[in-house]
Design a protein around this nucleic acid. Structure first.
Lengths: 236, 236
DNA sequence: CTTGTCGGATTGTTGAACAACTGGCTACGG
DNA sequence: CCGTAGCCAGTTGTTCAACAATCCGACAAG
């Protein structure tokens, strides 16, 4: 090991494979993207509440980036619908209305049961991801960490969507769940919204484990309709 | 009518309602967005072919905007997956690979048949939009305007998706079709790709008109699978 | 109470500047 | 002839300062 030329590497490139997977670590990301990541997390966590204005000057100073870079980050989040941009007025954390909530659930009912039905079978590692999300939600609920319950629950639905095996569907779902957070943060009473659904999630996972995809899809469809109405009832 | 105060308007505000809907017309758009619109159209039309590099300096000079504004526009299109951004190397018109095409069709098979099934019925104005797209495709085909055939065909699929009545699904679909253009422009031989599908579209429209939603959804699903494989066969 | 008008503050956009990085070229050594 | 290290020109990443366009509240006038 002392000399680089001492060890033979005639058969393969053991380290180049490692590098190929971890290339993303070396791909430094631009400042604008990192700023967008930070803002996105703050919005999802509810540290930036819907309606809050993000002035370019103060936000730029707070984050230590220039106005131009900040504007690039804003563009990204506006495109993700987490911020709204009013011309010559500024950017604000998005405020969802009832129509938005309805449409979000409509789109989810398109994606999630569809993903289940599109999957011919449920590979063990994907079932494991689904069950891991449920377990994580149960633990968080036991410790009354409601924000984490919500996060775990969203991970459950993302794991469901992942059954379709489509990167684009995954990304769409991720965006929908992030957007839905805005609804929860808009009304603090909804912080415990997710708790009763953990049980239902467990039931869906069981159906999936049994291979009864159609029943799972139908259950999930009803589930989403119920959740939508419950969310709309407690809405401004 | 000569004097404004002559007519009574005691009951309601007839014009303020009109204004509420058309407020978007007054919302001028920023230059970055207009630049993005122009670039998007150029890419969709095939005037900017996949792989083309868009240097900030030359593109900015060509469009008459500053580098900063141009970069804002680039961010938008990168987010729409029409451009790719390689750090410190520049932005390029996206080049799709076979996996991308597969995933695009996977996502479409999730959305389009789902939209049909989600629609309890087919309202006449939405059926009219579907048939208008088909007629427009037929005309373009008769005049051998293949690019317009493709455009009309995509409008057909967007009209199908619109059956779900979901703005978000519509936007996702619009993005997917724009992305698919990249595949068509990548191989010029695919310019006539859409022609044989016009007939199938007509058949689906007939099924929808008859109210046989399930048959329409199943036909469309098979249709998409066929199109996917045909597209993949003629791919680099 | 509504309608002009004004002024401060914020956003929109530009141009220039410098740092950081890429890709190709060259020269050197084997 | 090949490979490598270093240099160099060009591009991108980011910041800054300036100015134009616009919004908003305040204040005055009708």
């Amino acid at each position: 090991m002392a000399s680089p030329s001492a060890s033979g590497q005639a058969d393969a490139e053991p380290w180049s494979d490692l590098l190929a997977g971890n290339r993303s670590l070396l791909d430094r990301t631009s400042t604008a993207e990192r700023v967008a990541d930070a803002l996105r997390q703050w919005i999802i966590d509810g540290r930036l509440l819907p309606g809050t204005q993000l002035s370019e000057h103060s936000a730029g100073k707070a984050l230590g980036v220039s106005r131009n870079t900040l504007r690039e980050a804003f563009r990204l989040l506006v495109h993700e619908r987490l911020l709204v941009h009013e011309f010559h007025r500024g950017v604000f954390v998005r405020m969802l209305d009832a129509d938005d909530v309805t449409d979000l659930y409509r789109t989810r009912r398109l994606l999630e049961p569809g993903a289940i039905r599109a999957a011919s079978d449920v590979p063990p590692e994907r079932l494991a991801a689904i069950e891991a999300a449920i377990t994580s939600a149960e633990q968080a609920a036991a410790e009354e960490r409601w924000l984490d319950v919500g996060t775990a629950n969203m991970r459950f639905h993302q794991a469901i969507t992942a059954l379709a095996g489509s990167p684009r569907a995954d990304e769409i779902m991720q965006q929908l769940t992030a957007e839905l957070r805005l609804a929860f943060h808009a009304t603090p009473a909804l912080r415990r919204f997710h708790e009763p659904y953990i049980e239902l999630n467990r039931g869906i996972a069981r159906l999936l484990a049994d291979g009864d995809l159609d029943a799972a899809a139908r259950t999930l469809d009803d589930y989403l309709t119920t959740a939508q109405h419950q969310l709309l009832d407690a809405f401004p």
